[in-house]
């Protein structure tokens, strides 16, 4: 399918397309901001108060708070990608398919 002027006009005003773009961008940016906040909170803690991460997890143990926190960030990164892929490959791709189907139907009408 080639994006002609008519096709662009049609898609632009398609409410499903507008919903897709709006929802997906909001979702993607929200997850990006979560990742950035988590990472920079960690990095700035290291820069300003490294001792915080060096506190023992339990009295008398050598394991420090920093170890589970670090591992948790790695897991959070992975889980966030999973959350995004699930919704994007399901809900958003369905919407996207509907937009394309509506566009094809509309363009077929014009040709007639």
């Amino acid at each position: 399918m080639i994006l002609t002027k008519e096709a662009i006009e049609h898609i632009k005003h398609n409410p499903k397309y507008q919903m897709l773009v709006q929802k997906r961008s909001k979702f993607a940016w929200t997850l990006s901001i979560i990742m950035l906040v988590v990472y920079y909170a960690f990095i700035l803690t290291i820069a300003f108060d490294p001792q915080l991460l060096g506190t023992p997890l339990k009295q008398g143990e050598v394991m420090t708070v920093g170890i589970p926190v670090g591992i948790a960030i790695i897991i959070i990164a992975f889980v966030l990608t999973g959350i995004y892929v699930r919704r994007a490959n399901g809900e958003f791709d369905d919407l996207s398919r509907k937009v394309k189907a509506e566009l094809e139907a509309e363009l077929a009408k014009v040709v007639k």
């Binding site: 990742m35 950035l36 960690f42 170890i67 670090g70 960030i73 790695i74 990164a77 892929v85």
Partner: peptide, 24 residues
Amino acid sequence: GYDGLIYSIGFLVGWPLILFLIAE
């Protein structure tokens, strides 16, 4: 010791952002 983990995390956190904003 611990510093190695900091470096690993730095190398990893770019990936979610590549997914959310760039890949598709």
